[in-house]
Simulated assay, not measured.
Amino acid sequence: MPRNALGHLVPGRVSPMRSVPKDIARPEYVGKAGPKPFDGSDVYSGEKVELIRESGRIAAQAVEAVGAAVRPGVTTEELDQIAHEFMIHAGAYPSTLGYRGFPKSSCTSLNEVICHGIPDDTVLEDGDIINIDITAFKNGVHGDLNKTFLVGEVREDVAALVEGTRESLNRGMKSVAPGRQLNVIGRAIESYAKRFGYGVIRDFTGHGVGEAFHSGLVIPHYDAAPRFDAEILENMVFTIEPMLTLGTPDKPGSIAWDQWEDDWTVTTRDKSWTAQFEHTMVVTARGVDVLTLP
């Protein structure tokens, strides 16, 4: 079982990439070192928004299908198989599969893993938490979300962190309005997190999504004023995906992290546990319309 003597996660065995039927359209980056630069817009027509909503719904339903299987004794590899098969059955391509070499159809991030955990033979244990991050590609667009699940009986402070992270996403979404600056989102999230002494991960952010998996638009989850002062526009599509931790900054404004040799898995340096929630949304005249609902 890939955990060390202290119970911290270590890399496990990763199985070969799963196949995708030839009749399912691939994103342009599949089979390449990386995606081509995105030169489009983060503002979408109503018709294109509905296509993103379709991809988002598939991804959201896949997350729920995986979440229903989360329990002690299950491996993250088994969870990834559920995600993969669900999207394939829906006629969608798993966006992470082959993205910059990522080998799986979902990200499974446990306990101290902040994000980008690669599914492998890690066995879920009672008391763990696991973030399931899934993006589906269909009709030329991506829909992206993630959700943190409890595994069995979880410590009270860990359960509170998970619920607090969910609420921080809600606070971030409620701050969105056309004409405001992007940095209001992070300000709302960080001010909420500070009330409970949670750390906020700064180096991994929300992003523009739709025709591109990551468009280049950055959505910080901390108070980034006066940086990131771009105006929020109606019909703009992006993700908000705060990552909060039980750890505190080791220096002002910074949560230290490490990346495994797989070039993907990111963990807190102090091994403090972390949770994350994400939605893809479109900006409306009154706020946001979430595009990643089951």
Rank of each mutant, 00 (worst) to 15 (best):
H214Q: 08
S215V: 13
S215Y: 06
S215T: 15
G216K: 09
G216N: 12
G216R: 11
H221Q: 13
H221S: 07
Y222A: 07
Y222N: 03
D223F: 04
D223L: 04
D223P: 07
D223R: 05
A224M: 01
A224C: 05
A224I: 00
A225K: 00
A225V: 11
A225T: 02
A225M: 06
A225I: 09
P226M: 01
R227W: 12
F228W: 04
D229R: 12
D229Q: 03
D229E: 06
D229S: 14
A230N: 02
E231L: 08
E231S: 01
E231A: 04
I232L: 05
L233T: 13
L233H: 03
L233V: 15
L233K: 09
E234H: 09
E234L: 00
N235F: 03
M236Q: 15
F238Q: 03
T239Q: 06
I240F: 04
I240K: 02
I240A: 05
E241F: 01
E241L: 05
E241C: 11
P242F: 15
P242A: 15
M243K: 11
M243N: 10
L244A: 09
T245M: 10
T245I: 00
T245C: 11
T245W: 07
T245N: 14
L246C: 11
T248Q: 12
T248L: 11
T248M: 07
P249N: 00
K251I: 02
K251W: 04
G253N: 01
S254G: 03
S254Q: 10
S254K: 01
S254R: 03
I255F: 00
I255T: 01
I255N: 00
D258I: 13
D258G: 07
D258M: 11
Q259A: 10
Q259Y: 07
W260R: 14
W260I: 03
W260F: 15
W260A: 13
E261Q: 12
D262S: 08
D262A: 06
D263K: 15
W264I: 12
W264V: 14
T267A: 07
T267D: 01
T268F: 04
R269W: 09
R269H: 13
R269P: 10
S272D: 10
W273F: 15
